[in-house]
Write a protein that binds this DNA or RNA. Structure first.
Lengths: 250, 250
DNA sequence: CTGCTTATGAATGATTATGATGGATTTTAT
DNA sequence: ATAAAATCCATCATAATCATTCATAAGCAG
C-alpha cells in the first residue's frame, strides 16, 4: 500500500468518524504501528488532523478555526448578515478596499466568482481571499501582532498607491454626533486614508456599535454609507438626515 | 509495446484508481523498471500525473500545500545550516530585509531575542516572526498565491520606503557567469531593489543551486556575499575572485 | 553499410520508507 | 495512590524505491 493511499484512507476515516484509533488504522492498512504513527505525525504537520492519545481527530483547521473562533464571537450571525448585504453591493470588475476586522472578513466568501480586485490591510484576510480565488493586494506596513492588521505611516504610504471605487471599513463606534470611531490611532489613520482613496465608502457594523464612541474619529457620518443589521427607529432617522443607511431585511 | 501505449495504459489506470504502483505497471506492461520510471518522469513534466514514492497519483490535489511542503523538504537540513550561519551575522539592533522563501524562513527562529527589526515580502514569514517576538514590517504588493510572496510594482514602491543594513535573499541559481537568477520576473525586481536599499546583501542558498541559472538575473556575483552549505572546489575558487563566500563548516 | 539518434534494460550506490525493539510516558483500573 | 496496561517516542537495521550511469538494441537517414 502506497503512502498516499494510507494518507487518504486515514483522512477518509477521519472525515466520516471525526476520530480514528491507531489500532483501527493498523488493521485497515496492514501497516506497522511505526508507519501509522509516522503518517499521523506527517499529516499533523500538514494540519490535516490533530494527534491525540491513541489516535487522531479532526484539527482546529486554519480556516475553520478562524471561523470557529469568529463564530464564538458576539453577534456573529448579525455580522454575517451585514457582510452578505455589503458584498451584494460589489459588482463585476470592482476594485475594492477591505479593512481588517471580523465583519469585513465575513464578506470574503460572498465575493468569489466576481472577477474583482481586492486591496486589504488585513493579514488574516489574505489566505481566505486567495482560497476563494480572488485577486488580492496587501498594503505594506507595521504588523500589529494582536490583530494581524497593517498599520502606521508605511501603511499609509503604501495605500496611497491605490484607488478604489468601493471601500469597506469596520468600526468600533457609530454615533450621529461623534461619527465613526476606533480606539487605535494607527488603525484610524489608515481607515481615513482608505476612505479618501475611494469613490464610495461603506461602514459595516452590527447594532452593538450604535451610539458608542471610541477614542479616535476616523470619518464623519456623512462620509460613508452605513450597513448595519438593525437600528432603533429614532437614531435611524437622525442618521438618515446625514447619509444613506442600509439595514438588513428581517 | 510502444511508448505511447504504455503512456495510455498508465493514465487509464490512474484515472480509474487515482494511484498506481510501479510494480503494478511493470507487471502490466512487461517493461523494465527503468522504462516505467522514465515514463512517469515524462508524464509528470507534462503535468499528467504526480510521482510519489512507489508510484504515481493524479496531480493537482493540494497543489499549494504540496509545493510548499515539498520545497521545504528537499535539502531541508542544509537549508537550516545555511540559515543558522546567515542568522549569526545579524547583530543587536540591525534593520534587515528578509526575502520570501524557505531558506530565509528557517532563519527566523535564530533571530529572536536580538532586538532587531525585520522587513519582509514573505506573507508566510510574518506569523513566525511575530511568534518569535520580532518587530516586523511587511511590504505591500500583489499576493502571489502559490508562494505567499508580495511582488510587483506596488511591492517595489512600498519597499522604497525602507533602508537596511543587511538584506538576505534566496535564489534559484548561482552561477559564476550568469550571477544570481530566478524564474519569476516580478520577484526578481523586488529582490534587486531590496539589495539596492541595503548596505550589504547576502544570498542564502544550498548547493543544489550552484551552476544553475534561471530565467532572470537579479544580481551579479560581486554584489552580494554568498552563504552556502557546500561547494565544489573549482567553482568556489572562481566565485571567490569576485566576492566573499561563506561555506558552512562541516 | 555507417553513423546518428532514441529507447531500453541492467547495475550501482544513494535515498526513503518500513518494522521491530526497548524504554519513557500516559491512561486505566483498582 | 499505586500498579498494570496501553500508548508513545527514539533509535536502529532492513527492505523498498530512487536517480544515475552505462552498454546494448532498435530505428532511420544518408
Amino acid at each position: 500500500m502506497l503512502t498516499n493511499e494510507r494518507y487518504e484512507l486515514i483522512l477518509n476515516k477521519l472525515a466520516t468518524h471525526k476520530t480514528v484509533k491507531i489500532t483501527e488504522l493498523i488493521e485497515a492498512t496492514d501497516a506497522s504501528e511505526s508507519t501509522i504513527r509516522r503518517d499521523l505525525t506527517e499529516l499533523e504537520t500538514l494540519n490535516k488532523l490533530q494527534r491525540i492519545h491513541g489516535g487522531a481527530t479532526l484539527p482546529d483547521r486554519d480556516m475553520q478555526e478562524l471561523s470557529i473562533s469568529a463564530k464564538s464571537e458576539k453577534y456573529f450571525s448579525e455580522k454575517v448578515k451585514v457582510a452578505s448585504l455589503a458584498a451584494s453591493i460589489v459588482k463585476e470588475g470592482d476594485f475594492i478596499y477591505l479593512d481588517a476586522g471580523t465583519t469585513t472578513f465575513q464578506m470574503i466568501p460572498f465575493l468569489k466568482d466576481r472577477n474583482i480586485t481586492v486591496v486589504t490591510n488585513g493579514l488574516t484576510h489574505v489566505e481566505s481571499l486567495t482560497e476563494h480565488g480572488i485577486s488580492s493586494y496587501l498594503i505594506g506596513g507595521y504588523v500589529k501582532a494582536t490583530t494581524g492588521a497593517l498599520v502606521g505611516q508605511q501603511a499609509r504610504n503604501s495605500l496611497k498607491q491605490y484607488h478604489f471605487n468601493k471601500c469597506f471599513l469596520g468600526t468600533n463606534g457609530v454615533d450621529p454626533v461623534h461619527g465613526y470611531t476606533t480606539p487605535d490611532p494607527d488603525e484610524a489613520t489608515v481607515k481615513s486614508l482608505a476612505a479618501e482613496q475611494s469613490r464610495t465608502t461603506y461602514i459595516v457594523a452590527d447594532h452593538s456599535k450604535v451610539k458608542k464612541s471610541s477614542f479616535i474619529k476616523f470619518l464623519s457620518i456623512e462620509e460613508a454609507v452605513l450597513i448595519i443589521d438593525e437600528m432603533p427607529e429614532d437614531i435611524l432617522n437622525e442618521l438618515e438626515e446625514k447619509t444613506l443607511v442600509k439595514v438588513v431585511q428581517k
